[in-house]
Amino acid sequence: MSAEKYLEMAIAVPLNQILAEHPICRDFFMNLRLQDLDWNLPLMQALDHSDQEAISEFGLDRGMILREFSLFLEAFSRVAADAAAIRSLTIIGGHGKSGEPEITQWTATVGEIISIVGPTGSGKSRLLADIECLADGDTPTGRRIHVDGREVDEGQRFDMEGKLVAQLSQNMNFVMDLTVKEFLEMHAGSRMTRDAEHAIARCFECANELAGEKFALDTKVTQLSGGQSRALMIADTACMSSSPVVLIDEIENAGIDRRQAIKLLAQKEKIVFISTHDPLLALSADKRLVIKNGCISRIIETSEEEKNCLDAIETLDATLLRLRTRLRHGDEISMNTLKGEE
């Protein structure tokens, strides 16, 4: 529907009818301090009876409000429809820190999980940043990123801005003073998710499966532990976010079920990149990119043998966790703790 159609609708249709169909419009009126309108009337008539002084403080008049309202309706019907669907991302190699050339090109397709490994300072985060901004030879690495096998033109670049990539890193925290439930409702609201209630329940359930210690819907997000926050962020990215590309930068020390997290993300038709030093995460991926001195120096497909090691690695991991838990509780450690025999 075009902006003109919405304009016609805003002129003719009583507000409560528009609100019933587009609940988001309530925000439009709240933003302009217009909460006491006669909702049985169409907009212009309703505005006749409102405080003109307050409207003028916003630098608006009735006609401008009408126009803005139709633009608002149009913009948010677009938000509801959009989901930047993509099939593949291609990295066209640039050069390393000393100018040495890297791989010519390499493509990741939807559904793939790719880990990125390499020493600290080698350029893992840089690669994630190149993907995030759809580099076009304009970053220190000279890389270029193509989407669906093609160069991204200016128009597409703008269309995809902010929708293509969801990011998760160690430094990210929740800053909103909301409960988990309110937080998820707010996110679902901004996504204009259709079956919000179901999506929220599903996301909450997934988050609790990933988190070591359980949390409740009425826990404040700011009070979640590091592990619980990461778990909620991952579940939220998997269940709520529509971004087809997920970039995760070193979240290892978080105390979450990492293999489960990977499985959850893998189900969701996304391309997931994870920069990591953690063997469990690195080997749970389908492929891993090895970064050396700023270059992608090798691409390794996770072999059957490596996959078979995962169970053993998980046992090691559980042993370390057990040791940590005992130490934290002020207990002593023995060979039996190591073997898990107490």
Partner: peptide
Amino acid sequence: GDIVSQAEREVFAFNIRQ
């Protein structure tokens, strides 16, 4: 954006759009 969650960034952008 580097210090808040993805969801908060999205809600923030949504509120700007409003």
